[in-house]
Simulated scan of single mutants.
Amino acid sequence: MTPELTALTLAALLQCLQFVAYAIPANRDLGPVYTMSARDREPSRDMAQTTARLGRAYDNHIEWLLLFAIAVLVTQLSNQNTQFTATCGWIYLGARILYIPAYAYGLKPWRSLIWAVGFLATALLLVAALI
């Protein structure tokens, strides 16, 4: 497996871990009656601030994992794997790992800077596949 595919696989597993890290406190905060329901109405209780942030960090990962997956796929299919593209893959993964606690604990401006590093690594991976 190439380093880029390994980083993508680990990023997908990170998404699984993020879901668990969010779902457990969300279930505690909202109660199983709500979390097991069809959620046709707003919850009667609020989530803790950190739980809500974990949920937003999870949603953000879902949104941006697709673009990273496209970048890795393009790199793989075009046989443009290089040390540079491998480094971009690992930087993306590292940024996503750091993003979770940065978001959960409201570390500003670090959260946004960490996100930007991951985005830049993905964009550079796409550009590298074109060169």
Rank of each mutant, 00 (worst) to 15 (best):
R45L: 12
V127E: 05
T51S: 08
S37I: 02
R111Q: 06
A116E: 10
M1K: 12
Y99Q: 15
L120C: 01
N60E: 08
G106S: 07
V74Q: 08
L13V: 11
R39A: 10
Q80E: 07
A104I: 11
C16K: 03
R41W: 07
L13E: 00
A95V: 04
A104S: 15
Y103T: 04
N27L: 04
Q80L: 06
K108T: 15
D59V: 07
R41E: 09
D40N: 15
W115F: 12
L130T: 13
T82M: 13
N60R: 01
A69P: 01
A38G: 13
L113F: 11
T75P: 10
S44K: 15
T122S: 00
V127N: 04
A23Y: 09
V72P: 06
Q76V: 14
A123T: 06
I24G: 02
L125W: 00
P109V: 05
S44M: 12
S37L: 03
L125N: 03
L77S: 15
I114N: 05
I114D: 06
I97P: 03
T51E: 09
A7Y: 00
L30I: 09
L113Y: 12
L120Y: 00
R45S: 14
L66I: 06
T51H: 06
N81W: 15
L10Y: 02
I91L: 12
V33G: 10
